[in-house]
Structures are given as structure tokens and as C-alpha cells.
């Protein structure tokens, strides 16, 4: 494996891990449900995407061809993350979850 490929994989892995961790930190410490929703939908999805890309690069340099299955998983995650976030936001509005102080505007009645 060439050095360049190795560096690419290492960088991808570390970026992926960092974003996953940041998403989880956001989930753990942001003040209310709607702000917490932002961490997992963006940071975590991108983090896992980067880890999957690292896996694609790794296995393609092992001489096993480009892994379409990995890319399918990634596409699936990117397609489903906004949908589950949307469903959860609707459920939270229905249950009248507390919003943090200083939020402008109001959630709708469900």
C-alpha cells in the first residue's frame, strides 16, 4: 500500500471518529431536545460516512475492488438520518417537550 493511501485512510478514520465523538458530546450536553437533534443528524452521520470511506479506500488498496456495499450503507444512512430526525421532532412537538429559554418562535400544536 502506498504511503499516500495510508495517510488518506488515517486522516479519514480520525476525522470520522472525531465527528462521531462530537455528535455524541452534543447529544450529551446541549440543553434541550431540539438542539440535541442537531448533533446526531449532522455530525454523527458525517462521522460514520468518513469511517465508511476509509474502509472503502482500505479494501480497494487490498486489491478487493471498490466496495459498493459500503457506499450503499452510506447512502442509506444519509437518506434516513433526516427522516428519523423529522419523525422524532414531530413526536417531541406532540409530547410538548420543553424548549430551552431564549428560543425564538414556537413549535406547532400537533
Amino acid at each position: 500500500m502506498s504511503t499516500l493511501a495510508e495517510y488518506t485512510i488515517v486522516v479519514m478514520l480520525l476525522i470520522g471518529g472525531a465527528f462521531t465523538l462530537v455528535g455524541a458530546i452534543g447529544l450529551a450536553r446541549l440543553p434541550d431536545f431540539f438542539t440535541r437533534l442537531h448533533g446526531p443528524t449532522k455530525a454523527t452521520t458525517l462521522g460514520v460516512g468518513a469511517i465508511i470511506l476509509a474502509s472503502v479506500v482500505y479494501f480497494s488498496f487490498q486489491g478487493e475492488g471498490i466496495g459498493i456495499t459500503e457506499i450503499l450503507i452510506m447512502a442509506f444512512l444519509f437518506m434516513t438520518a433526516p427522516i428519523s430526525a423529522n419523525m422524532l421532532a414531530k413526536a417531541a412537538m406532540h409530547l410538548d417537550v420543553d424548549v430551552m429559554e431564549g428560543t425564538k418562535g414556537n413549535p406547532w400544536e400537533q
Binding site: 455528535g23 431536545f33 440535541r36 437533534l37 446526531p40 428519523s84 422524532l88 413526536a91 417531541a92 409530547l95
Partner: peptide
């Protein structure tokens, strides 16, 4: 709240 727990499971 319950949505928080579901979100945690999702993540």
C-alpha cells in the same frame, strides 16, 4: 423525555 431516549438509541 421519551424522544431523547429514542434519539440516543438512534445515535
Amino acid at each position: 423525555d421519551a424522544p431523547d431516549r429514542v434519539l440516543a438509541l438512534d445515535t
